[in-house]
């Protein structure tokens, strides 16, 4: 198991390396001219050609791309120094993902500051939609064909066919604005270390929106998977042994039914961790997603690159975790 995880992590590093290179190339040959943008901003739109040239030189746009990519990678491993059109030299310690063009702060530090917010949203939301979705799905599967089952399935289908951003906006409009529910009065991220209660109430609406919306999907997945498993021969065997219904369902059937649900969860949770742009934007949570959105709008290339890399890393890790969970659930899966 340990060797397997190490192997997967190493191949993950290779994937990250390839992604970093493609992101780098996209910027290099992309349509926007970062030096122009940053020069305009720095000089309040009085960018002279001479000034522009200084920025070009500083940001390395006069060198061939592979040389600059080398500098970038060296920065990740050992840190480097960065200049922004003036004589002032910024120290960027390893792992250096560059300086933000906009805030002139090290990208990695900014990312570290925003991670807790995104992790709070993602973990809380995922916890809610799993703890709601799976039991509801199991309950529906046990009552398949009944009115309860049909009502659940069709109402959840309606919810999940609403676009998520609309759903999130509506929850905010109703719960915070119209009904003025105190718990949801102030959304946003407040560090848990400073004020846990405030952290909780700030996150609550985002969790609710993610949980209520996500659980509809997980209800459908786990219901479908459960219905299938309940028809398996080994479930009949379990009943023939005289086991209680709950033992049959939760011990024998659920473990098998979870396997496909975990697969989907692994992929989705990775995306969630990489930044839930809509959630963060609507509920004003200063996390990775919101940061990425701002960076794209402002052509803050180092930040865009960092968020892309972060998303890739998170996906790789959650895939490894899913594979490990597989092998725990299903003994026929051998990790090697």
């Amino acid at each position: 198991m340990f060797a397997y995880v190490v192997k997967r992590l190493l191949s993950g590093v290779v994937v990250l390396f390839l992604i970093s290179m493609s992101v780098f190339l996209l910027f290099w040959y992309g349509p926007s001219e970062p030096a122009q943008t940053i020069c305009d901003r720095d000089t309040s739109n009085r960018c002279t050609p001479a000034r522009l040239e200084v920025f070009r030189e500083n940001l390395g746009f006069n060198n061939p791309w592979y040389e600059e990519y080398g500098t970038f990678m060296k920065g990740v491993v050992a840190g480097r120094e960065i200049q922004f059109g003036s004589t002032k030299v910024f120290e960027c310690p390893a792992p250096c993902l560059g300086y933000s063009y906009r805030t002139k702060a090290p990208v990695f530090e900014e990312m570290k500051d925003r991670m807790p917010a995104t992790f709070s949203v993602a973990i809380g939301g995922a916890f809610l939609y799993l703890t709601l979705g799976i039991p509801i799905g199991v309950a529906a599967a046990r009552r398949r064909g009944t009115v309860t089952d049909k009502a659940l399935v069709s109402s959840f289908l309606v919810i999940s066919s609403i676009p998520y951003y609309l759903f999130a906006l509506l929850t905010w409009l109703f719960l915070t604005i119209s009904w003025e529910i105190p718990l949801f009065s102030e959304t946003g991220y407040f560090p848990i270390t400073e004020n846990p209660a405030k952290w909780f109430s700030g996150m609550a609406l985002a969790w609710f929106a993610l949980g209520a919306f996500g659980c509809t999907t997980y209800t459908r997945y786990s219901r479908g998977s459960m219905v299938e498993v309940l028809n398996e021969d080994y479930i009949r065997t379990a009943k023939a042994k005289g086991l209680r219904d709950n033992t049959v369902v939760y011990k024998h059937a659920l473990r098998s039914a979870l396997v496909p649900v975990i697969t989907i969860f692994g992929i989705e949770f990775g995306t969630l961790l990489a930044g839930t742009i809509f959630t963060e934007r609507i509920f004003n949570i200063d996390g990775i997603g919101l940061w990425a959105l701002q960076a794209v709008n402002q052509r803050d290339l180092p930040v865009v690159a960092a968020t892309a890399l972060f998303g890739a890393a998170v996906l790789i890790i959650s895939n490894i975790v899913v594979d490990v969970i597989y092998s725990v659930l299903d003994p026929r899966v051998r990790l090697s």
């Binding site: 398996e232 021969d233 080994y234 009949r236 065997t237 379990a238 009943k239 023939a240 042994k241 005289g242 086991l243 209680r244 219904d245 024998h252 473990r255 098998s256 659930l329 299903d330 003994p331 026929r332």
Partner: peptide
Amino acid sequence: SESRMRKLRGNAMAMIFQDALAALHPFY
């Protein structure tokens, strides 16, 4: 009743199924 039936099932009467690979739980 189901609860009294359960006490008989697998106890006073038992059943052996056809395809043992499918009839045994793969994870336990």
